[in-house]
Amino acid sequence: MSATGRIEEHPILGPLPERSVVTFRFNGVPMQAYQGETIAAALLAAGIRTLRLHEEKGTPRGIYCNIGHCFECRVTVNGRTGIRACLTLVEEGMEITAGEILPTPLKKGGHPA
């Protein structure tokens, strides 16, 4: 069993219901999820924890709060930036990309490296 697969059986909640398969792409790589899954859940089930790199420092980030408060899981979906992976359901044909380091030519001073 992979470390982060789906919890198919649960002693109290029962088995996972049958759901149809949805295909999407993350950073250009074709992937599968189940209907009704969030982007964050589908990627975690596939073993992907890093959802973006910090815009300036480039440190990898993944989900933190999982309910839309912290904005750590923001990704680009079909060209729209800043979409919270934890609140957004995967849809057929979705193109999802991780955030990367952005150039900051206008920033003066800034943080010490």
Binding site: Y64, C65, H69, C70, F71, E72, R74, G82
Partner: peptide
């Protein structure tokens, strides 16, 4: 002052 509005 970032994206989350300081919630964390």
């Amino acid at each position: 002052m970032g994206c989350c509005g300081g919630r964390t």
